[in-house]
Design a protein around this nucleic acid. Structure first.
Length: 506
RNA sequence: CGGGGCGUGGCGCAGCCUGGCUAGCGCACCUGGUUUGGGACCAGGGGGUCGCAGGUUCGAAUCCUGUCGCCCCGACCA
């Protein structure tokens, strides 16, 4: 008998968190690295998660009046130059297209030819080109607000990449809006941030803190950047979505002007906001355990897998028929406005092996059906949020009628667990000594496993912020909206400042 | 781009220090059989330019030089 691993994933989170993360992705068959450096191949199970993210967010965007559109992948290099801070932020990670064809040289090797008059950059984000188009579309106050979103891929030539968390090419959504007044634009910025927060918590079961970024962490060209920040299981912070108030910076550089009701020419106020495939990285690191991926039901590509147990050849057909029927019955139930999504795993494999396969993929429920269950009109049900062998026999009818409650129960449980984890690893810090103690690694071999979120007063002096970042490898993740009005003494200077969250970040 | 680690069948690794027969092991895969309510067992089998290039040598997975790639840490970032 082969030795049984205690956990399906090795190493465990405790042993080597970054390696565990990669192994979960592999075991769940979410994605893999590609022949192209820094780019990833998203496999069907991983892409299905992205599709679910996309569908749910898209509904929310449309419900708040936004329309989808598509803008070019290529941006003339000169466009990037229009906004000074924007150039600074993105120039060093742009892929540049300089030629339009290939020609074979004397040795038969292909060489770029047809040099372009003006190089094109592959969009790292689309503010500049969308600004250019907006300037044509906006003439009058009657054209505002202009509320556009695009689902697209972007490229940022990163030095170091990690599947889902940071890849050279990634999928995302970028909303771009233009408004007549500052108030409207600010409202939009915060509204979209709230949508992200609600989505993260209620769809992904990933609790987030909403807040403003300090100047150092702001989007290049933005007056104000807001973000949702989540705590991963290694207690580091993940910026999971951003919403930017761009002021009139881009409308001035792109010429987005309109005539007001009073006949005066005014610059529009713009915003932009986005979330990316990084969310999937956050999802993995929020819920998964040492047996693999754990998916909250609402985001799961499938809610449930039926695993037929057919120990005897003569009962095989009967069991499979029963399973097909059960699948149909379950699909007749509605969860979150759509049929319950059911897999029937009739692969020619041993039942136990299949069960482990689905555990690693994170499917919320496993339903095992064998002759004994059929005889007693019941099912063996395993939940992904419980131990692999913690299974219960449930009457079939009770299971079918309770499936929606059960899925909600799992969803709620995962959110509660993540919130509890965050609470346990968030500390109010009032002195510098406490701060130092909190962020000093307990284990030298795993310095990445550190304190957590430090909630504390900070004067927000940029120089001090930089010094702290260098010294302790932690940064201000955000100035939480929830405590924005609080005035707290800075832990370092004693000056009156804001309550902020310090943490190590991804 | 700096520091560290690693490249050996699909995956995970041993072998390298101290060069020497046909390069091993576990998992996976294929065939046959026995099995079957939680990661099966027995027997047989297929599959590897030892990342790549050059060098040293009678002989290189092993030593030397270069190079490419991956992972971790740092700088940068969603």
């Amino acid at each position: 008998m082969a030795k049984q691993a205690k956990t399906a994933i090795t190493p465990t989170r405790e042993e080597d968190y970054p390696e565990w993360y990669q192994q979960v992705i592999k075991a769940a068959d979410l994605a893999e690295t590609s022949p192209v450096r820094g780019c990833m191949v998203i496999k069907p199970w991983g892409y299905a998660i992205w599709e679910n993210i996309k569908d749910d967010l898209d509904r929310r965007f449309k419900a708040t009046g936004h329309k989808n559109a598509y803008f070019p992948l290529f941006i003339p290099m000169s466009y990037l130059q229009k906004e000074a801070e924007h150039v600074d932020g993105f120039a060093k990670e742009c892929a540049v297209v300089t030629h339009s064809r290939l020609e074979a040289d004397a040795d038969g090797k292909l060489q770029p030819a047809g040099k372009l008059e003006e190089p094109l950059i592959v969009r790292p984000t689309s503010e500049t080109i969308i600004g250019e188009l907006f300037s044509k579309w906006v003439k009058s106050y009657r054209d505002l607000p202009l509320l556009i979103n695009q689902w697209a891929n972007v490229v940022r030539w990163e030095m170091r990449t990690r599947l889902f968390l940071r890849t050279a090419e990634f999928l995302w959504q970028e909303g771009h809006t233009a408004h007549a007044t500052q108030e409207e634009a600010l409202f939009e910025t915060r509204q979209m941030l709230d949508i992200y927060a609600d989505f993260a918590e209620n769809f992904m079961a990933m609790p987030v803190i909403t807040g403003a970024k300090t100047a150092a962490e702001r989007f290049p060209g933005a007056d104000e950047t807001y973000a949702i920040e989540a705590m991963m299981q290694d207690r580091k912070a993940l910026q999971a979505g951003t919403s930017h108030f761009l002021g009139q910076n881009f409308s001035k550089s792109s010429g987005i002007k309109y005539l007001s009701a009073e006949g005066k020419e005014e610059f529009a106020w713009t915003t932009s906001w986005g979330v990316s495939t990084r969310l999937i990285g956050g999802l993995i690191m929020t819920h998964s355990d040492d047996d693999g991926l754990v998916l909250p039901p609402r985001i799961a590509p499938s809610h449930l897998v039926i695993i037929p147990f057919t120990p005897k050849e003569e009962t095989r057909a009967e069991v499979l028929d029963y399973c097909h029927e059960l699948k149909q019955t379950l699909e007749g139930q509605s969860y979150m406005g759509a049929p319950v999504k059911v897999e029937l795993d009739d692969r020619d494999m041993r039942g136990g092996e299949k069960a482990w396969d689905w555990i690693k993929k994170g499917i919320p429920l496993r339903v095992e059906v064998g002759p004994r269950d059929i005889a007693s009109d019941s099912l063996m049900v395993g939940r992904r949020d419980r131990a692999p062998k913690d299974k219960q026999s449930v009457g079939k009818d009770a299971f079918v009628s309770g499936i929606v409650d059960l899925l909600d129960n799992i969803q709620d449980g995962l959110l509660a667990k993540a919130k509890k984890f965050r609470k346990e690893n968030t500390r109010d810090i009032t002195t510098e000594a406490e701060f130092v103690e909190f962020f000093t690694p307990k284990n030298k071999n795993q310095p990445e496993i550190h304190g957590g979120f430090a909630s504390m007063g900070f004067c927000c002096d940029p120089e001090l912020e930089e010094k702290i970042a260098k010294q302790y490898k932690v940064t201000v993740r955000c100035i939480p909206n929830a405590t924005l009005k609080e005035e707290v003494a800075c832990v370092f200077t004693g000056k009156l400042g804001k309550r902020v969250i310090f943490a190590k970040s991804y």
